[in-house]
Amino acid sequence: MADFPQHGRIRHSYDTVAEEYRSRIGDELTHKPLDRALLTALLEQTEPGTPIADLGCGPGHVSGWLATQGARPVGVDLSPAMVALARRDHPDLDFREGDLLRLPAADGEFGAAVALYSVIHLAPAELRPAFTEIRRTLRPGGLLLLAFHLGTEVRHLTEWWGHQVEVDFHFLDLTTVEDLLTTTGFSVEARLERTHYPQEADTRRGYLLARRQDG
């Protein structure tokens, strides 16, 4: 599948830190009660048995948790190394390599989607096309759960856990993202923010739960 050249640095960076990322982040949901609650709310409003996209799935830990709740997750990640780890740790689940701007999925394939801290690597101009692409893969009425760091800064990393990388983390404004979702065919049903948990980086976190609108 064709890729977007500007995303090569992101892919390489996550390939480089994949094993370290898994060891540090792979159990993060155990100490994130709000995230689990929001994921549960999404599951309760999604038709049982319909695939749920985990966009930017990393080593597959969120997909793994969704599966324990009886869901049918499909993980998608830009990094081949991350996808390999996810397939190794969760051999019974479906993981695919892909870009948020061109997802490896059919129109209306997913009953819902989650994108936890994955849109933070998109340039501002890429958010609208990414939301349009996510909407394409959702069934009518399907829910999308987004999580991201709040603010206006861009953190550029050249070193991450002792590894050389080249990756940007875009902090986002909650209202700006909500407006973009609205103009790409979603209706935002919930928005909230929280401070960081003790185990997390010191940033405020934003969440939006939006539903695909039709007609």
Rank of each mutant, 00 (worst) to 15 (best):
H156C: 07
T152N: 15
I134Q: 06
A147E: 13
R102A: 15
R155I: 06
L100Y: 12
E126R: 02
L143M: 00
P91D: 03
A113R: 09
L157C: 00
W160K: 05
E159C: 05
A130P: 09
L157E: 04
S118D: 05
D107C: 02
T132V: 12
L127N: 05
W160H: 15
V154R: 12
G108A: 09
E109Y: 13
R155S: 01
L122F: 03
D99W: 09
T132H: 08
E133F: 11
G98T: 14
V154Q: 09
A115T: 14
L150I: 15
L143P: 00
A105R: 02
R128D: 13
F95Q: 04
T158F: 00
V114Q: 03
D99T: 14
G162P: 02
P140K: 05
L93S: 01
A112I: 10
R135D: 06
H163W: 04
T137V: 15
L101G: 13
V154P: 08
G142E: 01
R136Y: 10
L144K: 05
A113L: 11
L103D: 05
V154W: 07
W161K: 04
L103P: 05
A123Q: 11
A106C: 02
G141S: 11
P104N: 11
R102N: 07
L101Q: 09
A125I: 02
H149D: 07
L100S: 08
I120M: 09
E126S: 06
V114P: 00
D92N: 08
E97T: 09
L145M: 02
L157I: 00
L127V: 10
E97Q: 15
E109R: 13
L145P: 01
H121A: 11
G98I: 14
L93R: 01
L143R: 03
A112L: 08
T152P: 03
A113E: 06
L122Q: 00
A106M: 02
L127R: 15
P91H: 13
H156Q: 11
L144A: 08
L101M: 12
G142N: 02
E153W: 06
F131V: 10
F148T: 09
G141K: 03
W161M: 10
A123F: 12
R96C: 01
L143E: 00
